[in-house]
Simulated assay, not measured.
Amino acid sequence: MPTNIQLSIVIPCYNCRDTINSTVQFIRSQILETHPPLEIILVDDGSSDTTPQILKKLSDPYTRVLTLKKNQGRSSAINRGAKLVTSDAIMIIDSDCYMTNPYLISKHLKALSQGASVVFGQIFNSGAGFWARYQNEVAASRLRIKNITAQTTAHFSIHRELFFSMGGFPTCYSSYGFEDKDFLCQISNIISSDKVQFLTNSVEHRDDLSLSGLCGKLIIAAQYSAPLFHRRHPDFYEATPYGKLDLRCSPSLLSNIAFRLSPIHSMGCRLVAPLLEQQWIPFGAKKLVVRLLMALAYASGCADR
């Protein structure tokens, strides 16, 4: 395993005018002792806002911009950017994630040089509201169980050779959801858990979450992406909470109850959303209700196929 690994960064960009400049500036502020200037590849995935103009201003000898005329999805954007990488390793980071730790890339390089095949960086939210705490608990849970398929691909690094041996991200998903889970399943089938490292508090995620927004994404994932993922990974899908909520592949008591209650999720979102920032309601109670509504939204999407 080489000890002088070089790393390039690929950032998929879609309508990210409010975040991409900060994302790149945090990367450029990284402290690297022996690594040459970082190669950054910004992939504009058919943005319809002012993202293309911002990316053009960010371009320099070490920051390349690849423009896709039509929106092809995150997976295709990452794969297209990865093909331009000239380094030994590829780092992926979403356009709304900030490297607030100036030594983060050095930690990735150290882990990759010491034998790790993949390095996952923990996402955190520095906010004080319900969604910040909710995100942080989810991230802590992922880190605690250290299961490859439970991670997020919002920020990770991987040896270039391994990435291309897998064929990169699957591009068969045309809608939101499961493309990252599919990618992680492929990794887990190729490498052992001792070849994976996890870094705590790696990048700050500043996405503005909302209950209706998350439920909407889950409905889309259930309608369009879940059937494809189920065909590609049937045993894995049926063992997940998603599979257990899917009446079409798991006709259980749980999925039947979720199916019958699914029509109320929209009304529930409207009623619950204003209450999530109320301090007098225990966080645990709010989290339970949110998870229930998200489960009903997913069940609703499954029923609408």
Results as ranks from 00 to 15, higher is better:
T3Y: 13
T3A: 06
N4E: 07
V10H: 01
Y14V: 03
D18F: 13
T19Y: 11
I20C: 02
I20H: 04
F26A: 06
S29W: 01
Q30C: 01
Q30T: 06
Q30Y: 08
L32K: 15
E33Y: 13
H35Q: 07
D45M: 10
G46E: 05
T50A: 14
L58N: 02
L58P: 03
T63P: 02
R64N: 14
K69G: 06
Q72C: 15
R80V: 15
A82G: 05
A89M: 10
I90M: 07
I90T: 13
I90F: 04
M91E: 06
I92A: 02
I93R: 12
I93P: 13
S95Y: 09
Y98F: 15
M99V: 10
P102K: 12
P102I: 12
L104N: 01
S106Y: 13
H108Q: 02
H108T: 01
K110M: 01
Q114H: 12
G115A: 07
A116T: 00
V119M: 04
V119N: 04
G127L: 10
A128Y: 05
G129W: 05
W131K: 04
V138A: 06
R144P: 05
K146F: 08
I148S: 02
Q151A: 08
Q151Y: 07
T153M: 05
S157I: 04
I158W: 06
H159E: 09
L162P: 01
F164Q: 07
M166K: 12
T171D: 08
C172W: 03
S175A: 05
G177K: 09
E179A: 15
E179R: 05
K181E: 09
F183E: 13
S188G: 09
F198L: 01
T200S: 15
D207G: 07
L214M: 10
G216Y: 05
K217Q: 10
S225N: 12
L228S: 06
F229R: 03
D235F: 10
Y237S: 11
A239V: 14
Y242K: 04
L245C: 08
C249Y: 11
S252V: 00
L254K: 15
R260M: 09
R260V: 14
G268Q: 09
R270Y: 08
L271E: 00
A273S: 13
A273I: 04
L276W: 14
Q278D: 00
Q278H: 14
K286W: 11
A297D: 11
G301Y: 12
C302D: 01
C302P: 02
D304T: 14
